[in-house]
Design a protein around this nucleic acid. Structure first.
Lengths: 191, 191
DNA sequence: TAACTATACGGAACACTGTTCCGCTTGGCA
DNA sequence: TGCCAAGCGGAACAGTGTTCCGTATAGTTA
């Protein structure tokens, strides 16, 4: 598994053109830009875009795949480089937030329960949750944070906090995520 | 100010019918149910629904107005009833979360940057932020939480954390909000 | 080089949104 | 009873994501 059947030359060329165009449009108009805009930017018809990327979510995944991979790789690296697992976790979360916040509207698309988004959501979860789990477990084992927080919960919470950070300058997602992470240190809330 | 010009009898009747239908549909199909579905449920044409509620957001506001008012009223009450302003804040936030989480998709609509949602967003912010500010200030003044967190930030953060809580049983918004609130107690994060 | 075919392409068409428009109906009054 | 502004219904519009299918062509074979 892994190797794709070699496609026709024009198909390969179009796929790359589309990825470049999508990346450019995502930066310029946000991740929720119309598919037609991307097709137009690439100088390609609707059929072409949908044969290469069966759904909008697949295109988004393809564009951000490398950055997600980098984030996944950063987890163990931070854990190895830090004395404190908690600091590794905090830094990893910061890195993830930086990634999400700088892509206009990515956080919104990620959490939207619109049809067709399940693939995208699942991709991020599948890749990132295991890494988060590792960091979380290490921090718990070191006694630095409370136990009982699920990795999936934390990832979704962080992702959610990033929503709208790019459209409202009064809303500082990094700050709130910082507070959330700080909250992990305190014991269960005594309300 | 305050008193509306008296409308025709059928208009008043339709307005109430629409509110009831909308409330029912929101419960059954979520807050993002199609407008047509609400019109159908009310046995009314599209024109009628849009004359009474110029935009989807206005209808949502009308349906939830009472519950928002109740939440606004609860703020000062909790502050008066609690020895600790922090506990008042925590309880108030819990109450808000309960409200938002039990309305399918409300949190999502609230944060969506879709066109036409500004009114809805503005309504919630205008009503709730002052209350939040009061509680927040009191807790800061009592030295129970860190300073420097803006009321708007906290409200948006809490609202964001509620997104998707109704569609994924593995995601517990109340728990995460609890962690966020707990994070307010700790000093600035020492990453 | 010429023919042939699986592969790929373009873009019109579809289904579904929120919203607007306008001809028709009707409540309430003279 | 007759009038008409207020109100109504629902077709039509504009903007989504997605599908479909007739046409063009890359790559192979004669």
């Amino acid at each position: 598994m892994g190797e794709r059947k070699p496609k026709r030359a024009d198909a390969r060329r179009n796929e790359k053109t589309l990825l470049d165009a999508a990346a450019a449009v995502f930066v310029a108009s946000g991740v929720d830009a119309p598919v037609r805009e991307i097709a137009a930017k690439a100088g390609v018809g609707m059929g072409t875009i949908y044969r290469h990327f069966p759904t909008r979510a697949d295109l988004i995944i393809a564009v951000f795949r490398h950055q997600v991979d980098a984030c996944v790789a950063a987890g163990p690296a931070l854990l190895a480089a830090n004395e404190s697992p908690f600091r590794a976790l905090a830094q990893w979360v910061d890195r993830y937030v930086d990634f999400v916040v700088t892509k206009h509207g990515l956080a919104g698309v990620l959490q939207s329960d619109q049809a067709g988004t399940e693939t995208l959501h699942a991709y991020f979860v599948d890749r990132l949750v295991p890494v988060c789990a590792e960091l979380l477990d290490a921090a718990v084992a070191a006694g630095e944070i409370r136990a009982g927080v699920q990795p999936l919960e934390l990832m979704r919470g962080v992702g959610n906090l990033c929503i709208g950070a790019d459209t409202d300058p009064r809303y500082d997602a990094r700050k709130l995520v910082g507070i959330l992470v700080a909250g992990l240190r305190c014991g269960t809330m005594d309300a």
